[in-house]
Amino acid sequence: MEKRFAIGMDVGGSHITAAIIDVNEMKIVEGSVSKLSFDSNLPVQIVMDYWEKGIRSLCEKINLENLSGIAMAIPGPFDYEKGTFWIKDQNKYENFYGLNIKDLLRERFNFDNNFPIVSDNDANSFGKGEVYKNTKNLTKRVMAVTLGTGLGGCFIENGKIVQNRKDVPENGEIWNLPYKNGIAEDAVSLRGLLDNYKKFTGKQLNEGLDLYHLANSGDEKANEAFSKFGEDLAEVVLPCLKNFNADMFVIGGKLANAGDLFLNSFKEKIKNAGVEIEVAISTDNETSALLGVATLLS
């Protein structure tokens, strides 16, 4: 069988992580992962210079005739079918509003209109990547979340995303689920975590890393803030886990790195609700997203 490769990209507001994906085996080619940091609010042409640099550096490592496409994990709002940015007032890609990334890439690389350029949101991509990392997970019902500046979620059955079905929230999204006096993302996100600390101490921290260091140094209120975060996460996802009859729950995103500070309270809440489920923390969020979005080309 002829080898087929794709370029997978995890698109962030301050960086792009990219790698070559072996589409035949659905694996990341060893040594191909690269990361470029930049300010995505720079003019479009300058930002695209960074994108082009990252893509060309990978193209040099493979035979372009075997390139099956480009697959991008991109945060919303974004039209994933057409490839249009609708991100606004989020301090990232401000100058890309209304622009079509497929057109921009074809212009840069002279790709014809039949060359596959596909995309999906970062939460879906992460979830699928975590499933495909271990073939045993392909038969499971998996709910995955990404915890960071926002709250992402997805539901996967037999390796495929479930979005429009009665046992999952509308479009498979959880960030906007009603929770207490607002929505889930108000509590289960970085701002929710920092708000917990402010409620306990009256002090406003601006960086999650500061709270993480405080908690690890033994600060009681900082640890309470993380415990409350774990409880809120459990309350948000419990109805979803029950409705979907999930076998596995996977946590990713930047806040997953602090999992040891909120997992105990999360698991306790889940256990008290009578739900038995495998809980996993991702060890590599970005490469999971790369692998997951590349499944669109398989």
Rank of each mutant, 00 (worst) to 15 (best):
E2Y: 11
R4N: 14
I7S: 10
D10A: 08
G12Q: 07
S14T: 13
I16N: 15
T17Y: 02
A19N: 01
V23D: 00
V23T: 09
E25F: 06
E25H: 12
M26S: 05
M26C: 02
G31Y: 06
L36Q: 10
L36A: 08
F38D: 06
D39F: 12
L42P: 00
I46F: 06
M48R: 09
D49R: 13
G54E: 08
C59G: 13
N63E: 13
N63T: 12
S68F: 06
G69V: 06
I70Y: 03
I70V: 15
I74W: 08
P75V: 04
D79M: 10
K82G: 05
K82Y: 15
G83I: 04
T84I: 14
F85M: 07
I87W: 03
E94M: 13
E94T: 15
F96T: 08
G98V: 03
I101D: 01
F115N: 07
D122Y: 00
G129Q: 06
E130P: 08
K133D: 08
N134L: 10
T135I: 15
K140A: 15
G148F: 07
G148Q: 05
T149A: 09
I156R: 01
I156F: 03
N158H: 12
K160L: 11
K160R: 15
V162E: 10
V162I: 13
K166S: 14
G172P: 04
G172M: 01
N176T: 11
P178F: 09
K180P: 01
N181W: 04
S189G: 10
G192R: 02
L193E: 02
D195F: 06
T201M: 10
T201S: 14
N206C: 04
E207A: 15
L209C: 12
D210L: 10
L211H: 05
G218D: 07
K221C: 05
E224C: 08
S227D: 13
K228N: 12
E235N: 15
V237K: 00
L238Y: 07
P239Y: 12
K242W: 03
N245C: 14
A246G: 05
L255H: 03
D260E: 13
L261R: 11
F266C: 03
K269G: 03
I270P: 00
N272F: 09
T287G: 00
A289Y: 01
G292M: 02
V293E: 09
S298Y: 09
